[in-house]
Design a protein around this nucleic acid. Structure first.
Ligand SMILES: [Mn+2]
Ligand SMILES: [Mn+2]
Ligand SMILES: [Zn+2]
Ligand SMILES: [Zn+2]
Lengths: 143, 143
DNA sequence: AGTTAAATAGAAATCACTTCTATTTGACGA
DNA sequence: TCGTCAAATAGAAGTGATTTCTATTTAACT
C-alpha cells in the first residue's frame, strides 16, 4: 500500500497532489478519520486543499472501493483507507478509532436468505462492528 | 401490534396524543419513513405536532428498541416500526421502501471473531441489506 | 507546446437536525 | 375530584456537516 499512483490510475482518476496527500495521510494510520481531520492533516503536511475537495475525493475513493465509509452515532461520516482487497467488514474501536478487519463470509448466507425467503434482489449490505479494541479494553477505554 | 399504550408504558414514556399518532402512522405501513414524512402523515391524520417533537419521539422509540433506524445513501435517517422482538436485522427495498425481517444469528460468529481474533469488547453491530423486494424486482423497480 | 476535459479553490447555500424556553399536560396520590 | 410537578410539547431560532456553484488551474495526451 504505497503505489498511490497505480491505485488512482486503476480508478481512472488523475494523479494530483491533493489525491496523493489525502492517501498519504490516510495510509499513515489505521484509524478512521473525518473529512475535516483529513483536511487539517493534509494542510499540516504542507498541501493546501479545500474542504469540499476533501469531501469529493473521499467519495471518489469510497466509490472505487479503496476507502470504507465508517458509520458513527453522531451521524457524521468517517473514512478509512483499507489496504485489504476482497469482501470483508470492519470492527471499529469507539475509543481510539482503530479499524480492524473482520473476515466473515456472510455473503453466502445473506444471498440465500434474500433469494429464498424474500425472493428479491440483493444489491449490497452494510455490516459494521463497534466496541473496544484489545488495548482500549485492557486500559479501560471510554464508553 | 396495536397496544400502543402498553408499549409506551413499557418504555416508561407517558401516553400522549403525539406518541399515539406517530405509532399509528408507522404501524399503518411496512415501509421505512423519514421524520418529515411521519410529521406530514400525522398532521394529515388530524394531530398537530411539531417537527422537533417527531425527531425526539422517534429517537425515544429507537432507544427503546421499538423502532429501527434505517440507513440510506442520502445520509438521512429513516425509521421503521418493527413488530417483531428478538435480535434480527432488515432487508430494505430501495424502490418501494418496504422493510422485511432477516433472521440470521450472526451474533454468535461475530462475538467469537471479536473475542478470539480481535480480543476486544463488542458493544453492537449494524447489519442492513438493501436491494429490491420481490414485487419490485418482478416489475423492474428503479435503481 | 497545444488542447481539453478533469480537478480545484473559495465563497455561498442548503437543510437535516438540534437547541432553547415558555407553556401545556399526563400521571399519581391526597 | 383535585393539586402537584416532572415530563412533554410548540414554535422560533440556531447549528454545522455537507453540497453546490463558478471561475480558474492542471494533468494527461498528442
Ligand atoms: Mn479492511
Ligand atoms: Mn424487523
Ligand atoms: Zn481502541
Ligand atoms: Zn419494493
Amino acid at each position: 500500500m504505497q503505489d498511490f499512483e497505480g491505485l488512482l490510475r486503476g480508478l481512472k482518476l488523475k494523479v494530483t497532489p491533493r489525491r496523493r496527500a489525502i492517501l498519504e495521510v490516510m495510509a499513515a494510520g489505521s484509524t478512521f478519520l473525518s473529512p475535516e481531520e483529513i483536511w487539517k492533516k493534509v494542510g499540516e503536511a504542507g498541501t493546501n486543499v479545500g474542504l469540499p475537495t476533501v469531501y469529493r475525493i473521499l467519495e471518489e475513493l469510497a466509490g472505487g472501493g479503496v476507502v470504507t465509509r465508517v458509520l458513527h452515532d453522531n451521524r457524521q461520516l468517517y473514512y478509512y483507507l483499507c489496504p485489504n482487497k476482497g469482501h470483508h467488514h470492519h470492527f471499529v474501536c469507539l475509543s481510539c478509532h482503530k479499524v480492524e478487519d473482520v473476515d466473515l463470509c456472510l455473503g453466502e448466507a445473506l444471498e440465500q436468505e434474500v433469494k429464498l425467503r424474500i425472493q428479491g434482489a440483493l444489491f449490497s449490505h452494510i455490516l459494521q462492528l463497534q466496541g473496544l479494541c484489545r488495548e482500549c479494553r485492557e486500559k479501560g477505554g471510554k464508553a
